[in-house]
Nucleic acid binder design. Structure first.
Lengths: 144, 144
DNA sequence: CAGCATCCCCGGTGATACTG
DNA sequence: CAGTATCACCGGGGATGCTG
């Protein structure tokens, strides 16, 4: 990592240009950091699943195949910190904790849902493209 | 990659339910794999930048802050394999290679752009939420 | 200029055990 | 049930050097 960055910019600085055709991709850019968060292994799935309903920790854990308890906890804490998910602790035994999208989270959900929809719609095209690429590549390798 | 997948499901199997309220999150699900690809560290940035224009390798490298030559190459190969990016080699010296979105890539670009737009629009809200969370957390810790 | 091969590190992640 | 704490790992990714 770069170790000399603390002095380079003032607090209120907005790193993203208004030009839709070009935007700042600096690593310290707020947009980059948020995209990294959204694009991590689990956040997107959590937000997609928390569609206008609240789910318990165990329900999320059960629904998201492959997530460990630790990573689900970490992911939910990050999303809570970002103001995208609300965490509600019910003071009962055994403990019960519900998670739901905040209004801000709901607005993001819409965008993410369209990404999921795109994926579902085009998965066959991608599968075909991959197969074609692999065949082409194998042929070239054999042709050498 | 997983080496034991051929036996678990038949080819035409669609892992995602039609119910928009619930979808399959199994790790071997095609949608999961594609979302992982889209959500990796660099793919999203590349697609966002390749908005209806072609860019040279060096231009992409220069524009995307922090990407190494290796990772840019790897990312572009994956996107090419997925049929999202077209790679054009010009037989000149020094070599010149252009990258542009395929028609399929263009359709994804639209969705990704809306995600970027969401991020730009709400970055201040998120920054505030984070600050509030940190203060709250620090207070609780001190209160213990 | 573009990109492959190699080496190697480190932090994200899973596994496990323990608490309220 | 819903966490927290700790440890060990391995693979993503950077650095470097070489090729067409």
């Amino acid at each position: 990592m770069s170790m000399e960055e603390g002095t380079s910019k003032e607090p209120g600085y907005s790193c993203c240009t208004e030009d839709a055709f070009q935007w700042d991709t600096r690593e310290d850019c707020e947009v980059r950091q948020i995209l990294d968060r959204i694009g991590d292994k689990w956040s997107l799935l959590v937000i997609a699943l928390l569609d206008n309903r609240s789910l318990r920790f165990s329900e999320l854990k059960k629904t998201i195949d492959g997530v460990s308890q630790r990573m689900l906890t970490v992911t939910l804490r990050q999303l809570e910190r970002d103001g995208l998910v609300r965490r509600t602790v019910h003071p009962v035994v055994p403990p019960r904790v519900d998670y739901e999208l905040t209004p801000l989270g709901v607005t993001l959900h819409a965008t993410i849902q369209s990404l999921v929809n795109w994926t579902e719609t085009h998965q066959n095209q991608i599968a075909l493209a991959r197969a074609a690429y692999d065949i082409r590549t194998a042929a070239e390798k054999a042709g050498v």
